[in-house]
Amino acid sequence: MKKTLLTSLILIASLLLYLHNDSNKPISESRFMMDTVITIKAWPPNAQNAINAGFKVFDEIEDALSFHREKSKLSILNNSFQTTKSEHLNNIIDLSLKYHEITEGYFDPSFAIINKLYGFYGNIPSQLPDKDLIKSTITQFTGLTKVLSFDKDNVYLKKGAKIDFGGIAGGYAINLASQAMINEGCQTFLIDDAGDIKVMGTKPDESEWAIAVLNPVEKSFLATAKLPSSMCISTSGNYERFVEINNKKYGHIMNPLTGFPAEEFISVSVIAKTPEEADIMSTALFAMPENLACKKAEELSIPALFLTADLRVIISAKGNDFFTRNSKL
């Protein structure tokens, strides 16, 4: 009798201990960096060290590539039209040139000069920029291959042009932060740079990574993306970053052919193996006309989900492997 009682108590105690066991619980931390909120969630082992290492990388990238920090390499290039080469600057320029070609120019960091005309970097104009001014600015100062040049030690920018790596720096930082976290011995984590997300490893309960795609119109979820380990998702839209001119909102992603804000989609989500590709392709597809964006997604086998301006949802063929639409829609 006593033996049974003792066994029972041990079993109950073990069960309660198991239920209160925190050793498998993740740590999550958010910081305001790179002009947005970045959240890193990591599971043991070495979760806190890995999170610190991840944020350190974001800080390093911000130092090198920020459009707003005066002493960043990018700011020096934008203000002096010349700077010495550096690892991060070289890497991000190489990636930008590669995807500038793949996207037929729809990914173009040199479009910062057009964003400036619309007041995205301060001083919002009371009237829309003049069409002829936009046209001549495009001709003279945009096109990445046209405005950038190099020699052995330096990068040069055409005088009057401006570069903003906002459409790729987040993805680039996620990739490096992810490597830093792995180096710290952390195997399971999620990095979320304002909707640019990378997942890594298998959670303790072995459930799939599930990422909700926001429907900004209904304030609900449009779809769920199930991601395998080490995959990334990114969403581009014009509903949060915009300027208001004459009571009309103008989004920050421009169609580089017209110089006007892209207006065919409300949001575009892309899944890719690297965060840079997800980040760039979601921006580039958003900037394209609908027919071209859908064609490009099929041509390049991109898992993509489009929410069009007239509220249609389009999922690319490859996207069906990852996205499940919310049944309420």
Binding site: L190, I197, L214, S234, S236, N238
Partner: peptide, 9 residues
């Protein structure tokens, strides 16, 4: 919630 994160702009 049943999601690990939310992607939106």
């Amino acid at each position: 919630q049943k999601y690990d994160a939310v992607t939106g702009q």
